[in-house]
């Protein structure tokens, strides 16, 4: 069967099945189990209302449990066992093996660099664009264009930037713009940017900054608009200049939004895989955790160490997870 038909069939079965499930489970609840008539009508309505939320939640809870909660526990278990010994419990041996690998520490070091540079630069550029476009007529068009890379896949972005970093042999015309500029101004030989140790990490980060700036700009721009005008008017009356207004009046008032943007981009950075995979695949000292994990799982076929490195990512995510949950609970009260 052609996959497109299979797809259509799945939509029909998936959507139809879901709707049918909700409809019939409700119908059974209201008409068979606890009919809202007869001598016990009142009690039955209450009982039905106790059960109904769980009917509505059931498919979502199954999917969430099976596809997100169970894997966390299973990955933890796998990281403590050895596949070659029929899944025997080996304690922390996988972690010890991982800590002994230089590639792991390279990935950790690079991840730390990514975690510092990408959220900082994306937030900074986002804030800059949000502030600058706030006052000009064509600001919305400008924002829309800077926001555009958000729609481009990491793989597409990798191709786009590889063209920029492209290097041709010395003496021939450079088709990568970075080398064209470099050769024109320094007169030196063209550089293979993606193989220059340490620097190449930054060339990869630029790709993610380019993508994420739009996100931070959108959120921060909305936050800037939400600042009460009186505070700014008061500052102008007191003789503050635009720079002072921005840093002393506006930024402090959107601090919590900046934190949200920062943590959201941090999460993206921790999971970044496609960019590194497509551009260098971790060669030339550009390994990051997510790609290290992929290599361990599917190239080296070592589920123990692969799961251990996945748990490292989880560990790094956990503080943000706790922070988010606490904020969400605070907001609900």
């Amino acid at each position: 069967m052609h996959p497109a038909f299979l797809g259509l069939l799945t939509i029909a079965i998936g959507v139809g099945g879901c709707v049918a499930y909700y409809f019939f489970s409700n119908w059974v609840l209201d008409n068979v189990l606890f009919p809202a008539k007869g001598p016990q009508a009142g009690r039955n309505i209450n009982r039905a209302n106790l059960i109904r939320p769980w009917l509505f939640l059931f498919p979502a809870m199954i999917a969430l449990g099976l596809y997100l909660a169970y894997p966390v526990i299973e990955t933890l278990r796998l990281s403590l066992t050895d596949r070659d010994q029929d899944g025997a419990f080996v304690g922390l041996a996988n972690y010890m093996q991982m800590f002994g690998e230089p590639k792991f520490w390279e990935a950790m070091r690079n991840n730390m660099l990514w975690l510092i540079v990408v959220p900082a630069m994306s937030t900074m550029f986002g804030l800059l664009v949000a502030q600058l476009t706030d006052r000009i007529k064509w600001g919305n068009i400008a924002k829309s264009l800077i926001f555009m890379p958000m729609a481009i896949s990491f793989v597409g972005a990798a191709v786009i930037w590889k063209l920029i970093y492209d290097a041709r042999p010395e003496g021939t015309e450079q088709i990568g713009v970075l080398n064209a500029i470099y050769v024109a101004f320094s007169g030196g030989a063209p550089q293979q940017w993606l193989t220059l140790p340490i620097w190449n990490n930054f060339f990869l980060m630029v790709v993610l900054i380019w993508i994420q700036t739009g996100f931070s700009m959108v959120i921060l721009s909305a936050a800037l608009r939400g600042i009460p005008e009186e505070t700014i008017e008061a500052a102008i009356v007191d003789g503050a200049n635009p720079i002072q207004i921005f840093f002393k009046i506006k930024v402090p008032q959107i601090k919590s939004t900046i934190m949200v943007v920062w943590t959201t981009i941090t999460l993206v950075v921790l999971k970044v895989f496609d960019i590194v995979f497509a551009m260098t695949n971790g060669q030339w000292s550009t390994q990051v955790l997510a790609n290290y994990m992929y290599t361990q799982l599917f190239v080296a076929n070592d589920w123990g160490v692969g799961s251990a490195s996945a748990m490292m990512i989880m560990l790094l995510v956990t503080p943000i997870l706790v922070w988010n949950v606490r904020n969400a609970r605070k907001e609900m009260r």
Partner: peptide, 17 residues
Amino acid sequence: AIIVGLLVVPLQLALIP
């Protein structure tokens, strides 16, 4: 709260299981 927590779980953990 659980759903907010699951929002950030890296899907990397889900691959092998």
